[in-house]
Measured scan of single mutants.
Amino acid sequence: NLYFQGLKYMVPGARVTRGLDWKWRDQDGSPQGEGTVTGELHNGWIDVTWDAGGSNSYRMGAEGKFDLKLAP
């Protein structure tokens, strides 16, 4: 699974964008943008601060869902 392989790169400072299971509307800005991981992966959740200004926790394994992917 590509998403599980990418988890080791989901570290503080990593750049991310919305992924396969995104369901959080425009939390990442409008139009959709990139963000920066600000915390360690914990119980399948990870913290992100978006360039647009907001921050929140997103699923990276929790509930079998992956809200994020590494930015290109």
Rank of each mutant, 00 (worst) to 15 (best):
V48S: 00
G53R: 01
D26C: 13
G35E: 01
Q32W: 11
Q5P: 15
P12G: 07
Q27C: 08
D51A: 04
G39F: 05
P72W: 13
T49F: 08
A62R: 04
G13P: 03
V48Y: 01
V48P: 00
Y58P: 00
W45T: 01
W24E: 06
E63F: 11
W22I: 04
D47Q: 15
W24D: 07
M10F: 15
A62D: 04
S55H: 11
Y9I: 07
L2C: 15
T49G: 05
L70Y: 09
I46Q: 01
D28P: 06
Q32A: 14
I46W: 03
R59H: 02
G61S: 04
G54R: 07
P31T: 08
E63P: 00
L68Y: 00
V11F: 09
P72V: 13
G35W: 02
W50L: 01
Y58C: 05
D28L: 04
A52V: 08
K23Q: 12
A52M: 11
L7R: 09
K23T: 09
V37R: 01
K65S: 09
G64C: 15
L7V: 11
T49L: 13
W50A: 00
L68A: 02
L70N: 04
G44T: 00
A71Q: 09
G6Y: 15
I46R: 00
A62V: 06
L20I: 13
W22F: 06
Q32F: 12
W50Y: 01
G13T: 03
I46L: 11
V11R: 10
P12T: 10
R15H: 03
E34Q: 13
W45Y: 07
A52F: 10
A14M: 09
E63H: 11
Q27F: 06
N43D: 11
D51Y: 02
M60S: 01
S57L: 10
Q27D: 10
R59L: 02
E63T: 05
A14R: 08
R15D: 02
L70R: 07
V11S: 08
G6D: 15
A14E: 05
L41I: 12
G39D: 06
W50D: 00
V16A: 01
W22K: 03
G54Y: 10
M10C: 09
L70T: 05
E40A: 14
W24F: 06
L7N: 08
L2P: 15
Y3S: 14
W24P: 06
F4T: 11
G44L: 03
M10G: 03
G44V: 04
Q5D: 15
G6H: 15
T38L: 09
T49W: 07
Y3L: 14
K8F: 11
K65T: 03
W24I: 04
E40N: 13
H42K: 13
N56I: 04
G6V: 15
D67C: 03
T38F: 07
L41S: 07
F4R: 10
N1S: 12
P31H: 08
V11H: 09
W24N: 06
D51K: 04
G61T: 02
R15V: 02
Q5N: 11
P12F: 10
E40I: 13
A71T: 10
W22H: 04
V48I: 06
G35F: 03
M60K: 00
R18N: 01
N1L: 12
H42E: 10
N56E: 07
G53W: 01
Y9L: 10
A71W: 07
G44F: 04
R25S: 14
A62I: 05
G29C: 07
F4N: 12
N43R: 10
L20D: 12
P12V: 12
K23C: 15
L70D: 03
H42V: 14
N1M: 10
Q32I: 08
L2R: 14
V48G: 00
P31I: 08
G54N: 10
N56P: 02
G6R: 10
G13S: 04
K23W: 06
G44P: 01
A52P: 02
V48N: 00
N43V: 07
K65W: 04
M60W: 08
G33V: 05
D51N: 03
G61A: 00
T17M: 14
S55I: 11
G6W: 15
D47L: 14
N43T: 06
E63W: 09
D47F: 14
P72M: 12
G35T: 01
T36W: 07
V16G: 01
P72K: 13
P31A: 08
A14K: 06
A52Y: 12
G35R: 00
R15F: 03
G6F: 15
G29D: 07
N1D: 14
L41T: 06
T49Y: 08
G39Y: 03
G53L: 02
P31C: 13
T36S: 08
R59V: 00
G64D: 09
T49N: 09
G64R: 07
T38W: 05
R25T: 12
L20P: 14
D67Y: 02
Y9D: 10
V48W: 02
I46D: 00
H42T: 13
D28S: 06
G61K: 02
A62K: 04
G19T: 06
P31D: 08
G44K: 01
E34P: 14
E63M: 11
W45V: 03
L2E: 15
K23R: 09
E34R: 13
N1Q: 12
D51R: 03
T49P: 00
W22E: 04
S57P: 05
V16P: 02
L68C: 02
R18T: 04
G29M: 05
Y9A: 09
I46N: 00
L20T: 13
G53S: 03
V48E: 00
S57R: 15
W22G: 03
V11W: 08
G13N: 05
D28N: 12
T49R: 11
G29W: 05
Q27Y: 05
L68G: 00
K23I: 14
M60V: 08
S55M: 13
T36L: 06
G64H: 07
F4H: 13
D47C: 15
K69M: 14
G44I: 03
E40W: 14
D21P: 03
G13H: 04
D67N: 00
A62W: 13
G33D: 07
P12C: 15
K8I: 13
V11E: 08
D51C: 04
T36D: 02
A14F: 04
W45E: 00
